[in-house]
């Protein structure tokens, strides 16, 4: 094809016309860009946005004395003269749809308190609609949430919701705790957006386990998550495994578990056969594997004080460390 002809093709001419148009009308377009808008006042906004007016006037964002009197809408949406003239959605800032920048958003211009941590880099902050993913500004709901906090978290964290359906769980499904009881959703310094580091967070409610104790159990100092899983577990007490399997990860089985059991009653039926004083009501039934059942079913039947104790256990040879008392 003749290159000269190509230069003057239809597409080329259209593009040229577009640049010419932009050049001629540049001053007008510049004036119409949201960045050059000026404030028009709430009454202008509410003339058109009747529904929003009804929704926002009862809210803290409308009633807060920190907002500029008469220009409350524009406190969040920015100056609205261009939008009032063009009536185009793109000509005004909308926190719900315009949130995308990693750099920040307008909500944080006012919400600077400590509880907002340092949001940049926090996954919750960088969701599709930023703060509006969870909050609705034009509402009187508590904390301006779009749903109750329990329902809201469920939408994205379905796998955690599943863990709360297991037989042992913190009472979140019962409505006695909320996700925010442990999680600081606005970020901070801790893993999993926890309000505190693991140990401090758990001990803020379970303070009887803090110690320091005379007789310690080392994993308690190390990390609660070695033995427990916080959302839900099949085993009792949110244990990652049921006893004795959990204990056997670190401890050998009691050597008495290797005894052969007698098939019969525990108490001697022949007076004087064995020493007294076995109390008459200390009796029971024994079986071939009775010693194994006793020593390899639940270790904390005897070693109850697994989080630590100030009282020594009975044997000198274990130096009082068996956590039975």
């Amino acid at each position: 094809m003749n290159p000269h002809l190509k230069k003057w093709s239809c597409g080329y001419r259209l593009r040229l016309m577009k640049y010419l148009f932009l050049f001629l009308f540049a001053p007008y377009l510049w004036a119409q860009s949201p960045g050059n808008a000026v404030k028009v006042g709430d009454s202008t906004c509410l003339d058109c946005h009747e529904d929003e007016a009804a929704a926002i006037t009862p809210t803290i964002h409308w009633t807060s004395p920190q907002m500029e009197e008469g220009f409350i809408c524009e406190s969040c949406h920015g100056p609205g003269s261009v939008h009032a003239e063009t009536e185009e959605a793109t000509s005004i800032y909308n926190p719900r749809t315009d949130f995308m920048e990693v750099e920040g958003n307008k909500c944080l211009d006012c919400h600077t308190g400590e509880q907002f941590g340092s949001l940049q880099g926090v996954a919750h902050y960088e969701m599709e609609n930023g703060c509006s993913s969870c909050h609705t500004v034009h509402s009187t709901s508590e904390h301006l949430l779009v749903k109750s906090s329990r329902e809201l978290c469920k939408d994205c964290h379905q796998e955690v919701v599943g863990q709360f359906q297991l037989a042992s769980h913190h009472p979140v499904p019962e409505g006695l705790m909320e996700c925010v009881s442990c999680h600081q959703v606005h970020g901070g310094n801790n893993a999993f957006a926890a309000t505190e580091g693991t140990r401090e967070l758990c001990l803020s409610c379970h303070s009887s386990k803090e110690g320091p104790f005379v007789f310690e159990h080392e994993p308690v100092n190390e990390d609660c998550n070695i033995c427990h899983t916080p959302h839900g577990a099949v085993a009792n007490a949110l244990l990652v495994q049921n006893e004795p399997a959990l204990c056997m990860n670190c401890h050998y089985m009691h050597f008495h578990s290797s005894l052969t059991g007698y098939e019969g009653t525990v108490f001697s039926e022949t007076p004087g056969e064995f020493f007294e004083p076995l109390h008459p009501n200390r009796t029971g039934v024994s079986s071939l594997d009775a010693w194994k059942k006793a020593f390899t079913t639940k270790c904390t039947q005897c070693h109850q004080q697994v989080h630590g104790s100030d009282l020594p256990s009975q044997g000198v040879s274990s130096m009082g460390r068996s956590l039975t008392r």
Partner: peptide, 25 residues
Amino acid sequence: LANLSAREATDRTGAQPGGKMLTSE
């Protein structure tokens, strides 16, 4: 405490009672 009841046997088949006992209440 149902699993905490045992008596030692003195033979491999568990027919003869021994002296070590474990009881619960």
